[in-house]
């Protein structure tokens, strides 16, 4: 029973972390290795707004998300646009960027004390005899809302439809008058906002640490690879797969294997079925 509940919570957390990564990759074919850094930076931003500028919690969350959106857009507009299309350079550039942000935070940001965000609501409820604190319930709610919002956005909004068009065929979309660079800026902005939302929902459960950045990156990659890079439904299904696998491993084997499961999932998926278990991309299977 507790495996079921914690499995669901873990899976939704994974989906939340990965959704931004999937969005950016799906639309502009850009593996954003700086995703984990964006996640941590949001936590740090909210913390600073609360503790240094003495803003109230809700206001600082909103402000932080806006800043994240702009930051993501700026990263695309000023950095990534120069290396677009060169796969090696894209990987190296985003990786270097993420590394720079994280290590800068480690050097200048986190010193001496533990950094935590307050939970939204204190307290816990009992589900089937197992106490679950409310923050975890909120995580699930946020996860469902975000996924629902993304689905509505990409199916009924003009910009969202344009994004989907670009994801399918960039050149055709450009011919139909969609500005691909602008769309990629939007996607990157939304991607970093989603990383921010994940951070704000999940970070109150623990301390803000730099290592989280690397772990979030690995987990996002795991979810996206297992689900098939760029596939939405796949990513969510994969989040549940890895989420439950992790919880089962922790429960029956050893808690240290928590991350090992995710990493092995990446390696095994790529070796067995590089297009992911739920992916629709054909080109990897049949390379002609």
């Amino acid at each position: 029973m507790d495996i079921l509940i914690y499995g669901i919570i873990n899976s939704v957390s994974l989906a939340l972390m990965a959704i931004g990564f999937t969005l950016v990759y799906g639309i502009s074919r850009l593996p954003n290795f700086a995703h984990g850094a964006l996640y941590v930076i949001t936590g740090f931003l909210v913390w600073s707004l609360i503790h240094l500028l003495k803003l109230n919690y809700v206001l600082s969350i909103v402000l932080a998300l806006l800043i994240m959106g702009l930051l993501g857009a700026a990263i695309y507009r000023f950095v990534l646009i120069r290396v677009r299309g060169m796969a090696t350079s894209e990987i190296i550039a985003t990786y270097a960027l993420g590394l720079a942000i994280l290590e800068f935070l480690r050097w200048g940001g986190f010193k001496g004390m533990t950094y935590t965000l307050p939970v939204f609501i204190e307290g816990s409820v009992n589900i089937g005899g197992i106490p679950v604190d409310l923050q975890r319930i909120i995580v699930i709610t946020i996860g469902v809302v975000v996924v629902a919002f993304m689905w509505l956005f990409t199916h009924f909004n003009k910009t969202g439809l344009a994004l989907r068009g670009m994801a399918q065929d960039e050149h055709a979309a450009m011919m139909l008058g969609i500005d691909s660079d602008w769309m990629a800026v939007v996607a990157m902005g939304m991607g970093s906002m989603l990383a921010g939302i994940a951070a704000i929902a999940l970070l109150p459960l623990g301390n803000i640490v730099v290592e989280a950045g690397y772990n979030v990156l690995v987990l996002s990659i795991a979810v996206c690879i297992v689900g098939g890079l760029g596939s939405w439904v796949g990513a969510i299904l994969a989040a549940f797969m890895i989420g439950f696998l992790q919880i089962i491993t922790v429960a029956y084997i050893q808690s240290h294997f928590h991350m090992v499961v995710a990493i092995l999932a990446i390696i095994i998926t790529l070796i067995l079925k590089p297009s992911g278990f739920f992916g629709k991309q054909k080109e990897l299977e049949e390379r002609v």
Partner: peptide, 22 residues
Amino acid sequence: ALPLRGVYFAIVTLMYPLVLFR
């Protein structure tokens, strides 16, 4: 991992040291 190309090969090689470490 050798049949993989581009990002995918990079990801696998990035993951091996992490998994051995852990």
